[in-house]
Write a protein that binds this DNA or RNA. Structure first.
Lengths: 219, 219
DNA sequence: CGGAAGTCGTTAAAGATTTCACATACTTCA
DNA sequence: TGAAGTATGTGAAATCTTTAACGACTTCCG
């Protein structure tokens, strides 16, 4: 069951969902085969990097042919655990939280926001994007065995909520607040800091001018 | 004027806004000095990495003392061009776009969303977060010399809008759509793909279990 | 069938980033 | 003033990531 997949580079792991989504597109379009070069054009990742990434999982392609879309897709489906849905909670139903609730993650994705929490009485009991909004006071009681949370609360509330989430047994937090929250070392936090992303883009524009010959790249 | 800052590692450059924001906090709190260790605890970046990052700009600290908050802050203010505000356009006033418009970027930040565009007639002419919403048809006419755009449109519209932005002279795009857009090599695109971030977090949770001894890390 | 063209998987090199570890120099305090 | 303590800045090592290059095998087509 547990195939030797533990040493896949993190950089590779982060690209897997991207590959998966694009393969899904190809499959929907009825394409039967794809080369690393074609994939490269579509996802903007160097073709050698793609081949290297795939090679960590073994020989998935065929020389002179490329990759069989169906096969590759089903392989990634297994690898990314697409068959079992990961249940997610969202804390903070502001604009950003609402954006998430309306985003159809379940399509092309193994995740589903099952429950949302907010402190604003007006929102409690309503449904946003098909997800019921509960009062933040009921967090511990209603979280159940959900192990992943999206944090879209005001940054002043971030650490407090994070502490409660940890106590309630969460294992991963996707933190959209500017606060860098502290958690025990067995809880994983990914920070996505919108203001910083924007500021970094501006900095790169000023200090890392692109030439006509450079290739636009990611992140 | 143009100090030798061109070879600062990209990884370092991406952390600068984070440092800057935290220094701002410290300054507001009236703190006079700070050590790389303290900074490390706050921003969750290894203290050696912080010292290394700072060292690319020269000797900013004092041995046995640490860094003078005021000095460091004013240094970063210059380095990050905080004195001149970068004007930004936002395309797509949905939930996510609205979240941005209500986000006060200008505080702690050198960027300001000056204008927004949308295709939905109902939104045109209104103000969201103090920013006027224009019709997407008027993009070229009203963009002016704005050089950075935040793209929060449906992914099916992403490439088309990107093409128009490029023609209108944009230099940088912060792309929140799942579409990997193609642009000329002199335009910089940073992708932030929310579904993929969530999926990657789930993947890491399953395949990269954290021990009690590991330290939670970023991105 | 045979040769040309195509594409993978991989070795090796290059490049980027992080981390260690410590000499050095400053601060503090008696 | 001097000793003890502190924290920087950096050389060197370790680690991680990307990219180039090419042998090997497939497919394609005449």
């Amino acid at each position: 069951m547990d195939i030797e997949q533990t040493k896949i580079p993190q950089a590779t792991a982060k690209r897997l969902p991207l590959y998966y989504r694009f393969l899904n597109n190809l499959h929907t379009q009825g394409k039967l085969r794809v080369s690393s070069k074609e994939l490269s054009d579509a996802v903007k990742v160097d073709s050698a990097t793609i081949r290297r990434d795939f090679s960590y999982f073994g020989a998935l392609g065929k020389k002179g042919y490329g990759y069989n879309v169906e096969y590759l897709l089903s392989f990634f489906r297994k690898t990314l655990d697409q068959d079992e849905t990961t249940r997610v909670a969202l804390i903070g139903v502001g604009n950003l939280g609402t954006a998430f609730l309306n985003y159809n993650f379940t399509k092309n994705n193994n995740t589903k926001i099952e429950i949302a929490f907010d402190a604003n009485e007006e929102r409690i009991g309503s449904e946003v994007g098909g997800v019921g909004v509960e009062h933040i006071d009921d967090l511990e009681e209603k979280l159940g065995d959900i192990s992943v949370a999206i944090l879209t609360v005001p940054s002043s509330a971030a650490q407090g909520i994070a502490d409660r989430l940890v106590k309630a047994g969460i294992s991963g937090i996707l933190n959209f607040t500017p606060a860098r929250i502290s958690v025990p070392s067995n809880v994983r936090v990914h920070h996505i800091d919108l203001a910083i992303e924007l500021q970094a883009l501006v900095y790169f524009l000023k200090h890392y001018p692109l030439n006509e010959d450079d290739v636009e790249e990611d992140q």
